[in-house]
């Protein structure tokens, strides 16, 4: 149920985002989505890729600081109020969201996919389905 997200430390200056993207391109690793958290001085690039292990090796060889984090991919109905319903499920399950971002592939068949970081992904993966939230399997996310 869990996905491996790669987080990279970046200094906040022009051109810094390009480096890891080029490294992944050369390594032939397909990016599913990315999101950037930034402050005035530094940023964190969070990546979901098809082959996290290979990506990590390539990035570390290029001198990047990489951290692996487990995240959950959750199906969200692509209509007004859809995300609110999902988040209500999080509340029922007592799961707090640290951050979330969307999968770049957009919505299909009226359903979008959001990636959630929570404190305890294993616990969340058990409790969320009981609260009516559909957590996607690795195959459902990576296979598509």
């Amino acid at each position: 149920m869990k996905l491996t997200q790669l987080s990279l430390f970046l200094e906040n200056r022009p051109g810094q985002l390009r480096v890891p993207c080029e490294v992944l391109g050369k390594a032939g690793v397909d990016m599913l989505t990315l999101t950037l958290a930034d402050t005035r001085e530094f940023g964190i690039l969070r990546l979901l890729v098809r082959d996290a292990a290979r990506a990590r090796i390539a990035l570390e060889e290029a001198g990047c600081v990489v951290k692996e984090t487990e995240v959950l991919a959750v199906e969200v109905p692509d209509r007004p109020g859809g995300l609110a319903e999902v988040l209500a499920g999080f509340d029922r399950a007592g799961i707090a969201v640290e951050y979330a971002y969307a999968l770049a592939s957009g919505s299909r068949d009226g359903r979008a996919v959001l990636v959630f970081r929570v404190a305890d992904p294993d616990d969340a993966a058990r409790k969320l389905p009981e609260a009516g939230v559909r957590v996607l399997s690795r195959e459902e996310v990576l296979g598509g």
């Binding site: 964190i44 600081v65 951290k67 951050y99």
Partner: peptide, 15 residues
């Protein structure tokens, strides 16, 4: 320099 050991995934951890 930030190291893998010191690097947390969140902005708050880095702060």
């Amino acid at each position: 320099e930030v190291t893998p050991e010191a690097f947390g995934d969140t902005v708050s951890a880095l702060e």
